[in-house]
Design a protein around this nucleic acid. Structure first.
Length: 667
DNA sequence: GGGCTAATAAACATAC
DNA sequence: AGTATGTTTATTAGCC
């Protein structure tokens, strides 16, 4: 009975999860590419009006948004400063912003594969960082949109127009916000989407519509709208039209659109990929045509050094961003991000197509020419918005953390069979990466794990905890835990003896699992505090993660899972927002956040303290306290009270998947 | 190579 | 006696 007491609490204050940085450049980039095909929905509004109207409204709203955006950025920048790219030992509780990756990075810098690998093995951004990067980038995009809007018009308008414009603007704002949320969610689900989509079910509910309307699209749309407005204005009102070219994206051929008045119209789901031509470069960019330089600032991820002129920029570029590990690492990250985005884009295109087909909306072949899909767009957007979130919730009233998905670049790579023969390999699970399992994780990959005999990338402890937390009363009997395992994971439908033993072993071994005498008999509960303590693993934004991603193991799963999880962590707010209807989820979300922070705190502060706020569970009657080598005497109080085994009726999934390979689905 | 953690295996105890 | 449930120990493997 003597377990390594206290050994679990190590004080390596490096629990991390620092996050990362956001860089929406990535998004912007790929999106821009998508959108850059000058073809856009034509605007034909009664528009001269709108043009005027929007001025004031837009200005105001824009200011607000800008302020918000700036604040965000500032915060991020601050974090960024605090946390150097190479400081894996940070204890920051906040995701440390690190490298605002920008599309520009893609500029081929001639990096040898070996170098890349090196980099990957040494230091890369954590998934969280990537996530933050993306978000940041997105914020920038929004800002740009707003700016372009405000800049575009500065004329008075009459009340009527104002009303229209106001509505329109409001809608646009909503779209933007929704889009933001969607993007976040999307990112977190990216890889998952790759996997969860199975032949049979091309459109899993889990899959959000990636781009109902991406910021860039909005931007484009706006531009077109505005430009057409201005054109009309000029014609009818003799208004001098502002040249929008100064804005980020210059619509080379703004055509007429048919939307505008129809708020939903703006959601043109159309995303035809286009040659990544950047017709939308700012002046500087045009003059110097260097994607890494813009607005007098070096756009190298994480840099943002101010360079007065192009020359100084070049100097800076050569000196600060020479070919070294760090640069290549960043480049590598960028590449991965772009890859993911491309994949996602392709998938979402298909989905969009399917949706439109379903709705009998003509148009949009994968590469179809852009058409005003007013109707559809709105539908898709709202639909996805509503579908995406609920999906992850229904089954799992728990903590939304990470959409963990065993996905890799090649979705198809991971097949049941491929993973199958792996056998009983001892492998580190997500805990290693400080990625607690969450219902969201499971929920979002539920289908996958249910049907594919893929070993879930979680430790037994995490799974057990999850099972317990998912239960209504946060407690389960051993048998119920078993059932949960078999129900949720196809993998556990075989070799029952093995994993059941492991489950029992874990329950006994980890003090985070508390056995409680219950009416039913004995049930197991989770002591969150203890659980947090026992996850001292540190990632420190270290490369190992990404490195692993590259080094394709038979289990690429854990990695991506971890990656996704990390990324998703940043979007917790999203989940909470989306889960308004589900209080539990909200609580769990916050709980999860606490967990994350807590984990670090605990690790920092010598985890020997288990006093204060013990989990409610503890208040029950833990029959036996683990870990501390208590006196042999008092401890094992003969469980005379135990009136065990009254296997809860709850889950008595009669079906006990025993050792034999069972292939049936649990649905 | 050592330390740590987790998976796996198995012995053993207890209750039903 | 057999099974379920728990506990404990030992071994192995992956990671830092």
């Amino acid at each position: 009975m003597m377990q390594e007491s206290g050994t679990e609490t190590k004080s390596n204050g490096s629990a991390i999860q620092n996050g990362a940085s956001g860089g929406n450049h990535l998004l912007e980039c790929s999106l821009r590419e998508v959108r850059s095909n000058g073809e856009t929905p034509s605007v034909e509004i009664g528009a001269a009006d709108l043009a005027h109207l929007q001025q004031q409204q837009a200005l105001q709203v824009a200011r607000q948004l800008l302020l918000q955006q700036q604040q965000q950025q500032q915060q991020q920048q601050q974090q960024q400063q605090v946390s150097g790219l190479k400081s894996p030992k940070r204890n920051d509780k906040q995701p440390a912003l690190q490298v605002p990756v920008s599309v520009a990075m893609m500029t081929p810098q001639v990096i040898t594969p070996q170098q890349m690998q090196q980099i990957l093995q040494q230091q890369v951004l954590t998934p969280q960082q990537l996530q933050v990067l993306l978000q940041q980038q997105q914020a920038l995009m929004l800002q740009q949109v707003i700016v372009s809007l405000t800049a575009a018009r500065v004329a008075p308008m009459d009340p009527q127009q104002q009303q229209v414009a106001t509505q329109q603007l409001a809608f646009q704002q909503q779209l933007l916000q929704m889009q933001q949320l969607q993007q976040q969610h999307l990112l977190s689900l990216q890889r998952q989407g790759l996997l969860t989509i199975q032949p049979g079910q091309p459109t899993l509910p889990l899959q959000p519509l990636a781009q109902g309307m991406i910021p860039t699209e909005l931007q484009q749309l706006w531009k077109e709208v505005t430009s057409s407005h201005t054109a009309e204005e000029a014609a009818s009102n003799n208004h001098s039209s502002l040249d929008l070219s100064t804005t980020c994206v210059s619509s080379s051929a703004p055509s007429k659109t048919s939307l505008i008045i129809n708020p939903h119209a703006s959601t043109n789901g159309q995303l035809s990929v286009h040659t990544p031509k950047r017709e939308s470069l700012s002046h500087e960019e045009h003059s110097h045509s260097h994607p890494l330089y813009g607005h007098g600032v070096c756009k190298w991820p994480g840099c943002e050094a101010v360079c007065e002129d192009f020359q100084s920029f070049l100097k800076h570029l050569n000196s600060e961003h020479a070919l070294d590990d760090r640069s290549t690492a960043q480049c590598r990250v960028q590449m991965q991000v772009v890859q993911q985005l491309e994949l996602q884009l392709a998938k979402d295109k298909e989905r969009l197509q399917a949706m439109m087909t379903h709705l009998h909306v003509k148009s949009t072949e994968p590469k179809a020419t852009p058409q005003p899909l007013n109707l559809v767009s709105s539908v898709t957007l709202s639909k996805t918005a509503s579908e995406a979130s609920p999906q992850s919730l229904p089954h799992t009233p728990t903590t939304p953390t990470a959409p963990i998905t065993p996905v890799t670049q090649g979705p198809s790579v991971i097949t049941t069979t491929s993973m199958h023969n792996v056998g009983p390999i001892r492998r580190r699970y997500s805990d290693k990466y400080n990625v607690p399992i969450s219902s969201a994780d499971i929920a979002q990959n539920q289908e996958f794990y249910k049907n594919a005999e893929v070993r879930p990338p979680f430790t037994y402890a995490s799974l057990i905890r999850q099972a317990i937390l998912e239960s209504p009363e946060k407690q389960l009997t051993l048998n119920e835990i078993y059932n949960w395992f078999t129900r949720m994971f196809a993998y556990f439908r075989r070799n029952a003896a093995t994993w059941k033993n492991a489950v029992r072993h874990n329950l006994s071994l980890h003090k985070c699992f508390v056995r409680v005498e219950n009416v039913k008999g004995a049930v197991w509960t989770v002591d969150e505090l203890e659980f947090q303590k026992r996850r001292p693993q540190k990632i420190s934004g270290n490369p190992s993660l990404i490195k692993n991603i590259q080094t394709s193991h038979t289990y690429c799963t854990p990695l991506n899972a971890a990656l996704q999880a990390s990324m998703a962590e940043n979007s917790i707010p999203l989940y909470t927002t989306a889960s308004m209807g589900n209080p539990t989820l909200g609580n769990l979300a916050s709980a999860m956040r606490e967990e994350l922070n807590g984990a670090m705190e605990h690790t920092n502060s010598n985890g020997s303290d288990s006093s204060p706020g013990r989990s409610p569970m503890q208040a029950m009657h833990p029959v036996h306290v683990k870990e501390e080598p208590l006196d042999p005497d008092e401890n094992e109080g003969p469980l005379s009270l135990v009136t065990t085994a009254n296997h809860s009726p709850d889950f008595d999934h009669d079906r006990d998947y025993e050792d034999e390979p069972v292939n049936e689905d649990i649905e």
